[in-house]
């Protein structure tokens, strides 16, 4: 199983709009959003805006980059990312 990303704009009712859809074998498993300047010290970090199935957890951490987010998603899906 491999993860694929697709850039997307997300309507979060905030300045956070730059996002990535995360697919695992064609299935949407998560929506990530990069935090904007309104989040102060956390600006630039990635936030699990929505998780589906195994990634639908209440308390995901913030991720330094998309790679870290993918590692975390992979861990929750029980897969090892190829070429990570």
């Amino acid at each position: 199983m491999t993860l694929h990303l697709q850039s997307v704009r997300v309507a979060t009712s905030s300045e956070d709009s730059s996002g990535q859809l995360v697919f695992a074998d064609g299935f949407l498993v998560a929506v990530l959003v990069q935090l904007s300047g309104q989040h102060g010290a956390n600006a630039g970090m990635w936030f699990l805006e929505a998780g589906f199935g195994l990634t639908a957890v209440m308390s995901a951490p913030l991720f330094l980059d998309v790679d870290a987010a993918q590692d975390w998603i992979g861990l929750h899906l029980g897969i090892k990312r190829v070429g990570a």
Binding site: T12, Q38, F47
Partner: peptide, 14 residues
């Protein structure tokens, strides 16, 4: 509130 700090930040800004 059972929200994330990110959501709190967004709601406060709104």
């Amino acid at each position: 509130t059972g929200m994330t700090a990110v959501h709190i930040n967004r709601v406060l800004k709104e």
